[in-house]
Design a protein around this nucleic acid. Structure first.
Lengths: 153, 153
DNA sequence: CCCTAGTTTATAATCATTATAAATAAAGAA
DNA sequence: TTCTTTATTTATAATGATTATAAACTAGGG
């Protein structure tokens, strides 16, 4: 984890930004909650535990900065808030999401899966793809299991 | 177009809602701007031309209602506003979008393209897909043409 | 014609996000 | 070290999108 933070520090420096204590605390929270999809408010509340003096605006600014540097990705699942997701180190493309319409869980798909589709789109629409967002909405395996179990009782 | 409105009227009735003049005016605007991706505010301003007494809250409520009934899809391209997009009649799935990071243009892809990917996801993650959102960010053909033209001058 | 339920209007309230100005910290020059 | 400059943060106000509220309105059934 330290090495991960060191590398992020280098990325910031390369763009002539500093890794201030507030920024480091924010990154640390993101690393500790890599599985989750935290909103700015979520991050703020968690960061306050390790850096109580931090302001909400700083968290927003830091998340925006990390987004610019492509260290995190900003996503929106249709509820009113933006969520922030650490990009896998070295990942060429943003990963996909499975949002369960029953329980609200959000799972990630790290595999690309879109290579063929993107090749078609680039050629057919003459569109040079730089990034993508793919989200599936449906019933997750947990809810699926749960309901088939209910039915058998 | 009239038949299209008639069918939407039937869909509303089937869910025991009425097609009030305000709702009809809103639907009419959506039909007239099928190519665009209007925000609630955009719709409001356009509807006011044909029904000046309408309130913004009614537009929001109508768009929400149409979203519930899957007559429109609510999408978010990362700017602060939700946009509303008429679903193609009889379309099984929501269509995809190409967002140009140069000029901001949003083009639509009506073809499904995701059948194979969805089959993989359903099987591998045991996730029952109900809907999807796919957006590509990149350089559209217009901007692409423009820059290669500039280079040759 | 009255009653009821659904709908709309106008407005206020809320919530996420961004802007502002003053305070602070860090880095470099003298 | 001390001065100076610039980046950063804090606290707070402002903005902008969306939602809630209460009163007025409308249409259909009895």
């Amino acid at each position: 984890m330290e090495t991960r933070i060191d590398r992020i520090k280098k990325q910031l420096h390369a763009a002539s930004y500093k890794l201030t204590p507030q920024r480091e605390a924010t990154v640390r929270i993101l690393l500790e909650h890599e599985e989750d999809h935290l909103s700015a408010e979520d991050v703020y509340l968690l960061v306050k535990d390790i850096a109580p003096e931090i302001g909400l605006a700083t968290v927003y600014r830091t998340l925006e900065l990390l987004t610019e540097l492509k260290i995190v990705d900003k996503i929106n699942f249709g509820d009113g808030v933006s969520r922030y997701d650490l990009r896998q180190e070295g990942a060429a493309h943003f990963h996909h999401h499975l949002v369960c319409i029953e329980c609200g869980a959000v799972d990630e798909i790290q595999e690309d899966l879109l290579e063929d589709v993107e090749a078609v789109v680039e050629k057919r629409f003459n569109f040079q793809i730089k990034d993508h967002r793919l989200t599936f909405h449906g019933i997750c395996w947990r809810c699926h299991d749960r309901s088939s179990q209910d039915a058998s009782e």
